[in-house]
Write a protein that binds this DNA or RNA. Structure first.
Lengths: 211, 211
DNA sequence: ACGCTCCCATACGGAACGGTATGGATGCCG
DNA sequence: CGGCATCCATACCGTTCCGTATGGGAGCGT
């Protein structure tokens, strides 16, 4: 052993971690696996499709497993909501952190990331959660928390671009309302150059120096 | 009788009309009554809440009545979709028809009408239908048809204001995406002057002469 | 009074779903 | 080897749905 002791220890730890990962992802399930699958269903069928037996069938187990990891269906919904909030908070600080001087570019990046064409699944989850919030005060509280953080971060980008306060507040609200709203619309009957129009709209929101 | 003949006839016709109205609205139901109630449920619980027995309970009848007026649940959904399209088409021509010279004012009116604060029920139906469209191609086709008409009418207003073509196309897309998206957001944690910000956003969309 | 149509109530079967109880398989640990 | 904890399968109950079959009441014409 000697000099290879630490390497051996790392190798063993990797083996253990691999074994643990396989166990968690194939043979045995945990809360995270159920919640992960729940997001898939959430994107496809909305919160109304989040049924215990449906998830169990997708995971190829029975609901006996579900009620081991979760107290009841509400416990799953709480876990999904918590996981959504955590992932959104992480995503916000990641998407709205810009190097000095690149704030405007970062604003365009945010509009692009939330575009409905790419990242389709993420937007479907976003819409499903917000529809969920219409019928649950607890979900509405989380959405309010996420929206507040998102708007504040985006506003700081506008402020860094030299936009005054009220204007920056309005523009970041317009930005997020647009990206959510455009994903609800079906515009391909209006113009065959929708992408060009969307690029123009991004200029209206971010720059707004057009005539 | 004599001179009172016509009065008597009118009285009888009123009685018959009242009787008919009572029959339609209380004792007996028709397709329109079920569809009307379906829109109430659609606003509250979304399309997933549109269950036959739930509607029957709300109308204080049994589903024996439902299956007299409708072939099955899909028949109701088709009726709801058709009624939504018709009402939207009527509303579009009503909301986007402006006297010459008042086109800009009419654009502000459209933004105001679709505001989430007032007309809350109408917006909930709008969102429910669009979420429905995510999982049904037939609904998506109707939404596409409505969106196309809406955008074309709104674009004509921008064009009448002297906005060039591509700019007008972009602005009307931005307008509708904003009004739908803002109704999905919960901004009251971001600012305590949300209404003032929304008024500013309306200027950004309609005028957009700000710095 | 009779039949006829319209409209709805009742009863039933079947499926999907939430939740509980219980047993069984596996692995770990002394 | 035996005891224990972990994790899941099975069986079951109650509820809520959709859809159908059938009967019945009210109006209405003859």
């Amino acid at each position: 052993m000697g000099a290879y002791g630490s390497v051996w220890k790392r190798f063993v730890s990797i083996l253990l971690r691999m074994d643990d990962t396989v166990r968690k992802s194939r043979v045995q399930l945990d809360r995270a696996s159920w919640i992960e699958q729940a997001f898939e269903v959430l994107a496809e069928d909305g919160v109304a499709g989040l049924r215990v037996e449906v998830l169990a069938k997708r995971l190829k187990v029975t609901k006996g497993s579900f009620y081991w990891h979760f107290k009841d269906r509400q416990d799953l919904l709480d876990g999904v909501l918590e996981a959504w909030r955590d992932s959104r908070v992480r995503d916000i600080v990641k998407q709205t952190r810009a190097r000095p001087g690149e704030e405007l570019q970062q604003l365009y990046h945010v509009i692009d990331v939330y575009s409905a064409s790419r990242n389709r699944k993420g937007m479907l989850i976003e819409l499903a959660v917000r529809e969920w919030a219409k019928r649950s005060n607890a979900v509405a509280d989380v959405v309010r928390e996420v929206d507040t953080k998102r708007l504040e971060h985006a506003r700081s980008l506008f402020l860094a671009c030299g936009v005054p306060m009220e204007e920056a507040s309005s523009r970041c609200m317009l930005l997020y309302a647009y990206v959510f709203g455009i994903s609800l619309m079906i515009c391909d009957g209006f113009s065959n150059e929708v992408d060009a129009l969307k690029a123009h709209i991004a200029d209206l929101i971010a720059k707004a120096k057009e005539t």
